[in-house]
Every structure is written in structure tokens, then in C-alpha cells.
Amino acid sequence: MSDARVDDIERRLIVATQRGLPLVPRPYHAIADELGISAEEVMRRLGDMLARGVIRRIGAVPNHYAIGYTANGMSVWDIADESIHAVGERIGALPAVTHCYQRPRALPDWPYNLFAMVHGHSRDEVLREVEALAALIEREFPGACRGHEVLFSSRILKKTGLRIAA
């Protein structure tokens, strides 16, 4: 991982862009002026961070609610350990699922080890998607799923994304 760490200039680039790119015709030049480096270096380093995965992508981050995805269900699944990766890969690949993670159980009251976020235009749509996931898991991995729940989000309390200190 050491090659993926960021150096001082990259760190300053992150601080300068984490709230967003300047909305001016030459945004990379504006950042360059702020940091006292060349625009070519800004672009080269952003491209390099993209290639290394430090930057996932550059572009618009929509507010799910505002573009009509008013229902957001965190589906959680108790999947037999021996099947977890196969099930995770399978349901993560479905278009309805926007995040999919294996996480530790917290027994006795939290038996779930697979988390799959499902966004939809209504709760009914999310519930239908989740039931389709349950049916698919039961069909392709019989007996692997011992239970599931959906936790609907009723309010966004904070959404700032990553913030590192300057």
C-alpha cells in the first residue's frame, strides 16, 4: 500500500478540491494558482491519483433524494460464512445495489454480516428489490441466507463526505 500513500503536494490538492472543483472555465489553473504549482502538475497528479484509486472518479455527486431516489434501504443479511463472498459478489453486481460490504456480526442481537444498500423511488420499490434479492439468494445459494432485514433511512442527518484538515 505504501505506493498508494499521498505526498505533501497531493495532500494539499486533496484539501483544495475536497469541497469541489472551482466552477470557472479553467478550474485546474485556478487550483494551480492557489497551490503555487503549474496547472500541468495539477492535471498530472489528479490523473495519477485516479490511476491509483486514491480518487474514485471526478464528477457530479448527486443528492439521491433530489434526483428522485427518495427511498434508501440498507438491507442486511445473515449469510453462512462459507457462502458470503459468492453471495456478496453476486448481489453487488445487481443494478439495484449501490454499495455492498461484508461486515462483522455483533452477536447476539446483530447476526447480519452482509450489507447491501438499495435505492429506489419508493419504499415499495425498495422492498420489492430486496425480496427479489432474497429469492435470488435462495435459488442460487439454497440455505445460505438465515435472515434479513431492511433499515430505511428517514432523514439525512449529515452528508459532508471526506474532510481532511488543511
Partner: peptide, 10 residues
Amino acid sequence: VLTRFGPMFQ
């Protein structure tokens, strides 16, 4: 409508 426009960091 957009929460941000720019790089998404990992």
C-alpha cells in the same frame, strides 16, 4: 441537487 462536483476520494 448535487452534493458536490469534483473528485471523490477513497
